[in-house]
Amino acid sequence: MSDVAERVKKIVIEHLGVDAEKVTLEASFIEDLGADSLDTVELVMAFEEEFGVEIPDDAAETILTVGDAVKFLEKATG
């Protein structure tokens, strides 16, 4: 995994309290990792904090999986 992916993974594990092996790029926050709609809002805030970027609401709505987050953040910070 890339550096961005590792950092995303760490945040997801911490916020959702899930096992590391479940946090694959394909994993959906809601379907696979037990998040609810509020959890996903908080996750996006944590990504913003960690990467020092702003994720607009319309973009946040498209971040459904760990991979979506990694892709967005790699682009935003790259």
């Binding site: 509020l38 809002v41 908080e42 805030m45 913003e48 904090e49 702003e54």
Partner: peptide, 10 residues
């Protein structure tokens, strides 16, 4: 305000 948690109120 963008850093106020969605869990703040509940």
């Amino acid at each position: 305000p963008r850093r106020v948690s969605p869990f703040f109120i509940p």
